[in-house]
Write a protein that binds this DNA or RNA. Structure first.
Length: 556
RNA sequence: UGACCUAUGGUGUAAUGGUAACACACCAGUUUUUGGUUCUGGUUUUCUAGGUUCGAGUCCUGGUAGGUCAACCA
C-alpha cells in the first residue's frame, strides 16, 4: 500500500536523495561512524550512529565502523570492544570494521606527496612558537622561519622524523596554506607530530602520527565514503578537509555537519563524564544514571527505545536541548507493550484480612500484561496477611482518595475486594497494621458481588514474599541546562539521583527473573534486574517511573 | 569584534514561494481490576527592520541574539 503522505526528509536525507537522483554515486552511498577509542559511547553517539546507519539503510548503502585511532596516548583496545558491543546492541551491523591506523602507510605516502608538491614542510619550531605564530581570529599569523625549506630538505627531514631520529616535539610536518587565512584551521595546520609511544594496534612501528585533520578526510576518501557526517564543531574544518582531498586528487568524500544532541538534566562531554567516574559520584561508566549507552542499558533502556528517541529528536543545524521527558516517553512507550506486570511492595505495611482463613492459600491467576497481543497469566499466592504500600492507607483520607481508610473499599489486584475495618498504631502514632474484610463473591474474574470500587492496589502475600533490593534512579542534575555551568556542574548533582531501598517485598515468581529483564512493578514503575543480583538477593533498577497524575493532584 | 553556522509554541522537528503542522510537555474530559494504558479536545508558535513578489516562516539586505573556531586532542 502506498503511503498517502511520505514522511518529510531531514536535511541529510535530502542531500543523499538529491545526490542519488543526480547520479552522483552510481555505486550507492557509504557512510561511517568514526569514534575515537578513548572512552565509552553515550546517547549523543547514539544519535550519530542512528543517523549514519539509518541513512545507509534508508537509501540502500552501507556504514563502516571506523576507529579513529591516531593518538596512541589516549586510545586502548578495551574501548574498541565496548564500542563494538554498544553499536551491536543498538541493533546495527557495519559493512566493514576499519581503523585509521590501518592507513598509516597510505597517509605517510600522502604526506610525502604533498611535500613533493611544495604543499607541506617540516617545522622545527616549538609548540609555543607555533602557537604564537598562529595569530588570533582577528589578527593574521606570521610565517614560520622554516616555511621555505626546499622539497629535498623537507623530504629528508620528514623521513628522518619517521625513522625516529628526533625526540617528541622536535619537529612537525605542516601544510603550507596561508598564515593570514580568516579560518584559523587553514593557517598552516599540523599534519604530523612525533610521538614515541606504543600504539594499541600498530605497536612501535610508527613514531610519527597524523593529526585528525590529516587523517579523517583521507580515511573517508580511501574507503570511498560518500557522505561523511559529523557534528557542527567540525564545520570550520571542512575547508581543510576539502583542501587535502583536492591537493591529493583522491576520491572526493564530502563532509556534512549536524547539531549534536544535548539532553536536559545531564552532561554529555567525555571529560565531565570521566570526572563523575573519577570522583566516584557514580559507580562507573555503566552507572544507570550515566547517559552512556552502557549506563542506559543497565538502567533498563531497550535498543528500540533509544533508536526511537533518536528518530523523534530529528536532526538539524541549530543548537538544541532535548527534554529528558522525551527519552522517558520513548522507554515507557516500548515497555508498556513489552514488560510483564508484577507486584512489588516498596514501602510495606501489613494488611490483615480478618475473615480469611489463616491456614488458607490460594494460587490466583493474574494476567502478565493487559497490553500484550496474547494474554498470558501467572500464578500468585494469596493469603490472609499481605504487604501493601504504606501510602495506600490513610487514617484521614481526603476526598477522591481511592485507596484504603476505615470504611473504604478497594480491589486487591487480581484478587478480592476488601473493606477496611480497623488499623493499629505504635506509641508514636505510626500505623503498623491495617485490618480489612474481604468479600468472598468478589474474586477477580468471577465477581458476583455487584460491588464496584474506584481503586485497585497491589499486594504481596507475607508468607510467600521474596525480599529484594530496589535502586531508584532519578535525573543526574537538578538543573535543566548544564551547558553554562562549566565545572560547576558538580555542584548541581541531584542528591536523590540514587535512592536505595534495601528491603522490598516482591511476588515469589520473580525468583526466576533474568538479568536485564524488564518488568513493570504495578503502579510503581518499570524495573530491570541488575547484574548485582545473586541467588539470595535480587536487585532491581528503576528504569523510569510510571506517569503519576495522582502525585500531581496531591500536590495541588 | 575576523571567519563560519544558526534563529518556527515550554522543548524538539516539519511546512521545499501558496491555509504554520506533528511529537513531547502541560491542561480538561474519556476508558481502565495499574491514579498506568487508550481515546477525545484544548492552551501555547515563524527574532527584528526593510526589500523582492499577486503572495514570504521560506528569497535578498541590514540589525539583534545564540553557537563554533586560535590543542603537537578528536
Amino acid at each position: 500500500m502506498e503511503e498517502l503522505k511520505p514522511k518529510s526528509l531531514n536535511f541529510l536525507e535530502e542531500i543523499v536523495q538529491d545526490d542519488l537522483a543526480s547520479g552522483k554515486y552510481s555505486k550507492g552511498i557509504l557512510t561511517r561512524f568514526p569514534p575515537e577509542p578513548n572512552g565509552y559511547l553515550h546517547i549523543g553517539h547514539a544519535k550519530s550512529i542512528c543517523l549514519n546507519f539509518g541513512l545507509a539503510q534508508r537509501f540502500g548503502g552501507g556504514t563502516n565502523l571506523r576507529f579513529d585511532d591516531t593518538n596512541p596516548v589516549t586510545e586502548e583496545t578495551e574501548y574498541v570492544e565496548s564500542i563494538k558491543k554498544d553499536v551491536s546492541w543498538l541493533g546495527f551491523t557495519w559493512a566493514n570494521e576499519v581503523y585509521t591506523s590501518d592507513y598509516f602507510e597510505d597517509l605517510y605516502q600522502f604526506a610525502e606527496k604533498l611535500i613533493t608538491l611544495s604543499f607541506a614542510y617540516v617545522d622545527d619550531s616549538t609548540a609555543a612558537e607555533i602557537a604564537a605564530q598562529k595569530g588570533t581570529p582577528t589578527t593574521p599569523g606570521q610565517n614560520s622561519p622554516f616555511r621555505n625549506r626546499s622539497v629535498e630538505e623537507n623530504l629528508a627531514l620528514f623521513r628522518d622524523m619517521k625513522a625516529g631520529k628526533y625526540a617528541d616535539g622536535d619537529k612537525v610536518l605542516r601544510a603550507k596554506i596561508d598564515m593570514a587565512h580568516a579560518n584559523m584551521h587553514m593557517r598552516d595546520p599540523l599534519m604530523y607530530r612525533i610521538r614515541h609511544v606504543k600504539h594499541h594496534r600498530s605497536g612501535d612501528k610508527w613514531c610519527i602520527y597524523p593529526m585528525y585533520d590529516f587523517a579523517h578526510g583521507q580515511s573517508d576518501s580511501i574507503e570511498e565514503i560518500t557522505h561523511s557526517i559529523c557534528t557542527l564543531e567540525f564545520d570550520v574544518h571542512r575547508p581543510l578537509y576539502d583542501w587535502f582531498l583536492d591537493k591529493l586528487g583522491i576520491f572526493p568524500s564530502h563532509q556534512y555537519e549536524f547539531a549534536r544532541l544535548n539532553l536536559s538534566h545531564t552532561v554529555m562531554s567525555k571529560r565531565k563524564l570521566l570526572q563523575l567516574v573519577n570522583e566516584k559520584v557514580v559507580s562507573g561508566w555503566d552507572d544507570p544514571r550515566m547517559p552512556t549507552i552502557s549506563g542506559l542499558r543497565r538502567r533498563g533502556f531497550t535498543p528500540a527505545s533509544i533508536r526511537n528517541f533518536c528518530e523523534r529528536i530529528g536532526v538539524a543545524k541549530r543548537d538544541n536541548l532535548i527534554d529528558l521527558s522525551l527519552l522517558e516517553f520513548c522507554i515507557r512507550e516500548d515497555l508498556n507493550k513489552s514488560a510483564d506486570r508484577v507486584m512489588a511492595v516498596l514501602d510495606p505495611i501489613k494488611l490483615v484480612i480478618t475473615n480469611y482463613p489463616a491456614d488458607k492459600t490460594e494460587d490466583l491467576q493474574i494476567e502478565n500484561n493487559p497490553e500484550a497481543e496474547v494474554i498470558t497469566k501467572r500464578s500468585v499466592p494469596f493469603s490472609n496477611e499481605l504487604y501493601i504500600e504504606r501510602d495506600d492507607f490513610m487514617i484521614d483520607p481526603p476526598k477522591k482518595f481511592f485507596r484504603l481508610g476505615v470504611g473504604l473499599q478497594v480491589r486487591l489486584k487480581g484478587a478480592y475486594i476488601v473493606t477496611c475495618t480497623d488499623f493499629k498504631t505504635d506509641a508514636a502514632g505510626n500505623v503498623t497494621e491495617v485490618h480489612a474484610e474481604y468479600i468472598p463473591e468478589s474474586k477477580s474474574g468471577q465477581d458476583t458481588s455487584g460491588v464496584s470500587v474506584k481503586g485497585t492496589i497491589h499486594w504481596v502475600s507475607v508468607a510467600h514474599a521474596l525480599e529484594a533490593e530496589v535502586r531508584n534512579f532519578d535525573r543526574l542534575l537538578i538543573v535543566e541546562d548544564a551547558s553554562e555551568l562549566g565545572d560547576d556542574f558538580m555542584k548541581f548533582i541531584n542528591p536523590e539521583s540514587l535512592q536505595i531501598v534495601p528491603k522490598v517485598y516482591v511476588e515469589p515468581g520473580l525468583k526466576a527473573a533474568k538479568e536485564g529483564q524488564a518488568l513493570q512493578f504495578i503502579r510503581k514503575g518499570y524495573y530491570s534486574l541488575d547484574a548485582d543480583s545473586t541467588a539470595d538477593k535480587l536487585v532491581f533498577n528503576r528504569t523510569v517511573t510510571l506517569k503519576d497524575t495522582w502525585a500531581k493532584e496531591k500536590a495541588k
